[in-house]
Structures are given as C-alpha cells and as structure tokens.
C-alpha cells in the first residue's frame, strides 16, 4: 500500500518534469519514464498483460515516434527555444503548487463513495475475454490499424506535395 503511494508520487513528479522541462527532447524522454512507472503500477494492480503492452508500446513505440519527430523538426525548434523559455517559466511556475494543492484538497474532502460493487468475474484470463467474448474489439483494432496505415500513406508521403 505504502509502496503504491511512493510510486504514485514518483509518477506525478515525472509528469511535472515532462511538462515543465525546457528541452523538447527531454520532455519526450520523461514521458517515456512516466509511462514506464505507470506500467509498474499496472503490474502491481494485477494486470500483467496490460502492463507489458504499456511498457512495450507506450514506453517504446510512442517515445520513438516523438523522439524521431523532434529529431526531424529540431533545426527550427532551436531558434525559438530561448524566446519560449521565459514564457514557459511564467506560465508553468505555479503548476506544481496547483497540482499539490488540488491533491490535498481532494484528499481532505475524501469523497464519500458508497457503491455496490458487482460480482467478481467468472472468466479470469484476459486472452479468453479478448478472443472469445470481445471479437468485435479485435475487428476494431484491425480496422483502426488499417486506417492508421492509410493515414501514414497519405500524410507522410512527400512526393505529391504541391
């Protein structure tokens, strides 16, 4: 229980770092670390398969996407960095205090939740649920991957630019 709280605090700290850091590249890397911490939390919350997905796809693939994009766009970003620096500090100075204050306020209020939880699930294997009970979502995944493929074909192809 206590360990969970430490991990959660680390998650918030990393997220704040992600948002407040000056360098875009460091922001992307910190995002990957935040995501890794979240996958540890998922593992502790008894969802190992989802944790593996989070670790491999979000920490790996999305970071690679962001970092390569930043690499592609870097030359123009550099010039603006200095101007943005002052701007950013002014805007993000108060964010940690807002966030911590909000968390403490929520903790004090400690919303009285009284819900009747449903019965525990009979089927406990995520793979069975995925393939036998929710085939529609699998079809959905296939369709959205195809739509991503066409998005990449249309958006990233430079040859037909005017």
């Amino acid at each position: 229980m206590n360990l969970n709280i430490f991990i959660l605090i680390a998650m918030i700290a990393l997220a704040l770092w992600t948002v407040m850091t000056r360098s875009l590249l460091r922001a992307a890397i910190m995002l990957a670390f935040t995501s890794a911490i979240i996958s540890i939390l998922m593992f502790r919350l008894n969802s190992p398969i989802a944790a593996v997905f989070e670790l491999s796809v979000c920490t790996g693939l999305v970071s690679v996407l962001f970092i390569s994009t930043i690499g592609l766009t870097h030359p123009s970003v550099k010039e603006e960095t200095f101007e943005h620096m002052v701007d950013r500090l002014r805007k993000f100075k108060f964010l940690p205090f807002i966030i911590i204050g909000m968390g403490m306020a929520l903790g004090l209020v400690a919303v009285k939740i009284n819900l009747q939880l449903p019965l525990a699930e009979i089927e406990t294997d995520a793979r069975t649920v995925m393939w036998n009970l929710r085939p529609l979502d699998i079809i959905g995944q296939v369709i959205i991957l195809l739509s991503g493929v066409f998005g990449v074909i249309i958006l990233f192809k430079e040859s037909d630019k005017k």
Binding site: L136, D137, G140, I144, S147, G151
Partner: peptide, 19 residues
C-alpha cells in the same frame, strides 16, 4: 450493443476523418 465497442468505433471513424 456495448459501450466500449461504441468508443472503439467512434475512434475508428474519427481517425479516418482526420486523414
């Protein structure tokens, strides 16, 4: 007939329309 599948298909259409 399922609220999560509703979300999945909404997102499919949205991604196709961004492109």
């Amino acid at each position: 007939t399922d609220i999560f599948s509703l979300y999945v298909f909404i997102e499919i259409t949205a991604v196709a329309s961004y492109t």
